[in-house]
Nucleic acid binder design. Structure first.
Lengths: 189, 189, 189, 189
DNA sequence: CATGAATGAGTCTTCATTCAT
DNA sequence: CATGAATGAAGACTCATTCAT
């Protein structure tokens, strides 16, 4: 039993190390040995937990998806637009809290077509669309809101993330309120 | 004379080939030989026009900047918010027209910290901020518009771009109107 | 512990292989892979012990210097001219015993300005000059011996080496006695 | 006629350029383009006069041989030992006057086994041996002079050349007299 | 399980040589 | 003859992956 737990723990340690290394130098410039060193283990040991270098990136992506799913699962109670506002706030908060993790998404976009970032966005859009439909059913939505509004909400979040990742001076956490104001409060009936 | 023209032309041909190859496989997976083959020349000939593989990516980035600058320079006349709407429309149009080029930006973000994507976004934000200030001076702006609105406009565009690049089903051109509706018309006094 | 020893040993094996290969084909025509094959290892393994192809040549030079220093350190006891004669004999003997090593010096001269052959000759000249000064103090030196005599002694040795290296028929070991006769016995008071 | 003369002249210009370039950077680090630039012509034009890069080195060697032959041919008149002294002096003078040319010999030794430096030395030794035989016939030679003395004379010259080439502080012209004193006057009966 | 030495496939890059203009 | 753009063979070097200890 302890063995299995240790194994899971060690795997997570390596993944955390990979996140730090990939965030620091980019995936393309990161060597398996760099990750091993960051994790405090030998290069060969990485292969006891991951099949390949690409599997490290996949693992990072997967752990991001897990976190992302967790956020989507906690929309809670209340009117749809309030839940939407909370969702947007929590997604932004999650990204701001895990900057390294978010940074690695740049590499997932660029280097790993097999890792389905599109599915992540699709999932966000669907969750948001569901909330928008509920808001409409609740009579809370302005009638002229575009059918593409879910895409715009995801876009605003991801676009702010992008600017924050490439430029320290862009304050992601301060942007949460304006994002909500624009994309959620701004569509209230 | 003719020589100089030919040289410029050949350089551009290689750059165009590089854009296609990088867009197709990603920069990390693209070989110099792939670019040469796409351009219909020998591997070694690439080095007559570019110092290194990285210089190809830098060249692609540079040509993107040039196009981007050209768009920013054509805001035209009229009330500030109209010019802003036109600017957003033209940026989206430019990106939609040059999908391959835009796709390569993903690699610039991820693989080339020396290529200053942050400066591109900063430039967009500044151009938009200037227009927002003018709109305010013209009394066209709702008083509660966030100081971060320029960032949000850039974010919405780039976020839509991102979703379009990763997912064919997201229709970038159809998104231009909703983007403008939300981020420009929505802030009109 | 054992590891460290093995590492030193392996490094030496590669260096020995490099000496053989460089002596056989010349440094310019020697490939890293040739050295690896001669050492019975894979190409990449060479780089575990040497930073670059040039570092192999530097390593060969360094090991020559070490051998050369060892010879200079063993002049022993007795009248200065006897020690000088012994030194000349031992240098010639060392060169004759390690023909491959000596052959590589040709490449050091020609290909590696950063490897300081001049310093080696300077060191020889200084050691010999010291002995000549002692011989003079001992009254063993003919008064008309040139101030450049140390240079001439080094020249005679190296010049014989050169002729031997380029022409098998020149018998280096047989030349030791005549060299000593001419350059050492010939200056005795 | 003029054509042929021009062709010979151009060939010589290239060879002179090659000597300068090879002396400056070593043959291994010298590019055909470097030689062309030094000669003030285009890279491709070198191939109108030389078959290959190696042929440039061969040409330099050949021109050295020609100069060397010229020196050997001018021993002049008089007692054998005087002619020998004159020969040694003129060889040293020739080398000192054409340092670049001499420097390139290092590369010939190291890089071009097909260029027969051994034959050059052999030729020197034979010329010197002939003079020593005459000196003996003239009763001018000490009876105990080694059969290897010709080799030693060549060695002294080449060894001084070597030290001068690798170390500016070694004054080759000043060494002519001591060389003659040691290797020629020192064997007079 | 952990290690890290060894491997060798994979790429970038250089540059001698060719040849169309 | 002269040019210099184009070629592509060759080789240094890297690093993901394996495996004996």
């Amino acid at each position: 039993m302890a063995k299995a737990v240790d194994r899971v723990r060690r795997r997570k340690d390596i993944l955390d190390a990979a996140v730090r290394v990939f965030a620091r130098k980019g995936f393309a410039a990161s060597r398996v040995e760099d990750v091993a060193a960051e994790a405090g283990i030998a290069k060969g040991s990485v292969y006891l937990y991951f099949d390949s270098r690409d599997a490290l990136l996949a693992g990072v992506f997967e752990s991001y998806r897990a976190r992302s799913d967790a956020v989507l699962a906690t929309v809670g109670e209340g009117p749809a637009l309030e839940r939407l506002a909370r969702l947007v706030g929590e997604v932004v908060d999650m990204l701001a809290t895990h900057r390294d993790h978010a940074r690695v998404l740049l590499d997932v976009w660029a280097s790993a077509p097999s890792l389905d970032m599109a599915a992540v966005y699709r999932q966000y859009r669907e969750a948001i669309s569901a909330l928008l439909r509920q808001a409409r059913a609740e009579g809370q939505l302005r009638p002229d809101v575009s059918e593409h509004h879910a895409t715009l909400i995801v876009a605003t979040i991801e676009g702010c993330l992008l600017q924050w990742l490439t430029d320290d001076r862009v304050p992601l956490t301060d942007l949460a309120a304006p994002i909500i104001e624009l994309t959620v409060e701004g569509i209230r009936a």
